[in-house]
Design a protein around this nucleic acid. Structure first.
Lengths: 227, 227
DNA sequence: TGTACATCAGTGAACGCGCGTTCACTGATGTAC
DNA sequence: TGTACATCAGTGAACGCGCGTTCACTGATGTAC
């Protein structure tokens, strides 16, 4: 590997790190081409040697952040023996919050208000963004196999949501009932709702012991899922 | 009432309407002083006769939006006979989504990523923002009085969260257990999580029949709360 | 191995844009006597 | 009721700012023969 290629890789790395630095220090509004250049002691136009536009920069950043989050949560989940279903769920839920609190701006970029005139492209970014959902779906498969029976069902007929089943099948997840999917999703929404409150909410700031509070929310999801 | 005062009131109203129009058409980034002036066929500086700064403008807007949302949801809730506890909850949950879908940008302004360098002041805005929480707390009181017993409890001792109880008491809500509060809040988070997904999320766009989906989520909250 | 040429990273100036806010002003509406 | 003055809504120009992106350029690094 020649010097030139090495240096290019180093710079690319540095750009990414600097971008995350901007995000951590100033939130998503700080994510500007010029700010990034300032941070790197470069002239703004220099960045266009590495990135075609601000949009492309954001795409790269999104992809990395999704990957980081999914890696972290998945590692916590995978550390639990696979027959301990409640433990897997609890590890998942706990890690989700841990990551969010350690990376509030990254979390916000991914989960908050979509950026105007920017849409996450449905490529690798999406495959990363979806990893945790698939993890949950697999947990759901295991739960059903172990005899956990979900109690949430859609109003209409069986298979009121064919698109959902089809999508899961396309991802290799076939042994799960619609009811289990909905139950898992309900748990996911409960956790996410709690995190939105903690990070954005009116109450997030004061009032209560947040660890105990979240713990109660995790218990709620357990009741919901495992009865 | 003299002509001058009348016209001032009309203009104030027009400013608010125009601001909401900007929001609806272009999202929160469109909420600029100059854009507002353009919409009103005024020169930007003219607005400073009515509003001290962009910040004040936002505060007024927040207050109105919170009020609108709370009015709408509360009306739906209050239309149900007060002894029909499940019906009250269901009406609340349904109206919450209805309002969100009819006013996605308003909903986003209130519930999405907090605006940089703007914090909602803890005045009337907060009293409006909190109305729905208090409504739920009262529903919780009624539920307990009717013998619905919540099954979620915080890990530690009784009253692991004294600040919460104290706050509710300051709002005139005293006959509710911590467990009931947490149960209600869990339901709230589940609904909000589902709405965040629908409005911001990766899946929001396609995949499924969203009405059926949300209905299943409401059922989940009912299971959680009423057993 | 040495030379001629091509590639590439980074510079510096400039573009057009929209933003929030200020200021001195004009002309119409309201008020006091 | 008529006049003199004060209040007020809206104007128009200007301020300083930061943004994303382009372009012609320099000088160092790499490549072909």
């Amino acid at each position: 590997m020649s010097t030139r290629a090495e240096r290019r890789e180093i710079t690319e790395r540095a750009i990414l790190d600097a971008a995350r630095g901007l995000l951590v220090e100033g939130g998503q509004e700080a994510l500007t081409v010029r700010g990034l250049a300032r941070k790197l002691n470069l002239v703004p136009s220099a960045l266009y040697r590495y990135v075609a536009s601000r949009e492309e920069l954001l795409t790269i950043l999104f992809s990395h952040i999704y990957t980081d989050m999914a890696d972290f949560v998945q590692a916590a989940h995978d550390a639990v023996p696979s027959d301990d279903l409640r433990g897997r769920w609890r590890a998942f839920a706990t890690a989700l919050r841990e990551w969010a609190l350690e990376h509030p701006y990254e979390w916000t970029l991914i989960n908050g208000t979509p950026l105007r005139d920017y849409h996450v492209p449905p490529t690798e970014t999406l495959t990363q963004g979806i990893r945790l959902h698939l993890l949950l779906a697999r947990l759901g498969e295991d739960a059903e196999a172990a005899g956990v029976h979900p109690r949430i069902r859609p109003e209409g007929s069986p298979s009121a949501m064919p698109g959902l089943k089809q999508f899961l099948a396309s991802q290799g997840i076939e042994n799960i009932s619609e009811e289990s999917v909905l139950t898992g999703v309900a748990g996911w929404h409960l956790l996410m709702g709690a995190l939105y409150e903690e990070l954005f909410g009116l109450f997030g700031a004061d009032l209560e012991d947040k660890d105990v509070y979240y713990d109660a929310m995790v218990s709620a999801t357990e009741k919901l899922i495992f009865g």
